[in-house]
């Protein structure tokens, strides 16, 4: 059963008092849950959060399923999100995403066998002038080529394994 850490609980309590309405805390708290639950929000995590926040689980679930930055199923340690909207599409983003998938032998949206990589095509990330680009974790990687993208991922893989 997923449980927030003591620090996580403190975070939730602070957020509950931060805004004019308790409900506003749902979005930030879901980020916290995702962070502590290994990159995704499970149904039991929703129930747990509902208990901690004292907010109906359905209200939390509605938010969870509305926003794309919350993962509703597990993802790899490196969640490679390749923007594939217009300007990026014009600049080879879809080919880039396919290249990364092929390289790590993983289907879009699934986790590679080593548990490291998930590749998804996402909608506009507001980096159209530096297309193609990808987001891994919180960071943007821009003006990519097939080679430079793989380089970035390999680098992150190394760092992630060393930790």
């Amino acid at each position: 059963m997923f449980q927030l850490s003591p620090a996580g609980i403190d975070f939730v309590k602070t957020e509950l008092n931060r805004y004019e309405t308790k409900r506003s805390a749902i979005l930030p708290c879901l980020y916290k849950v995702q962070e502590e639950n290994g990159g995704w929000v499970s149904p039991e995590a929703v129930n747990h959060l509902a208990d901690v926040m004292d907010i109906p689980a359905a209200h939390i679930n509605e938010v969870l399923y509305f926003y794309t930055m919350y993962n509703k199923k597990p993802v790899g340690r490196l969640h490679v999100q390749v923007c594939a909207t217009i300007s990026c599409a014009m600049n080879g983003a879809r080919e880039l995403a396919k290249h990364i998938c092929d390289k790590y032998q993983v289907k879009e949206g699934e986790i590679s066998d080593d548990g490291m990589v998930t590749v998804t095509k996402v909608e506009c990330l507001g980096s159209c002038g530096t297309a193609p680009m990808m987001q891994i974790g919180n960071a943007y990687y821009e003006n990519l080529t097939k080679e430079s993208a793989i380089e970035v991922i390999e680098d992150l893989k190394k760092k992630s394994t060393n930790q």
Binding site: P56, A58, H59, E62, L64, F66
Partner: peptide
């Protein structure tokens, strides 16, 4: 509050 509309 049991029901919700999930996804979009």
């Amino acid at each position: 509050n049991e029901l919700g509309i999930f996804n979009r």
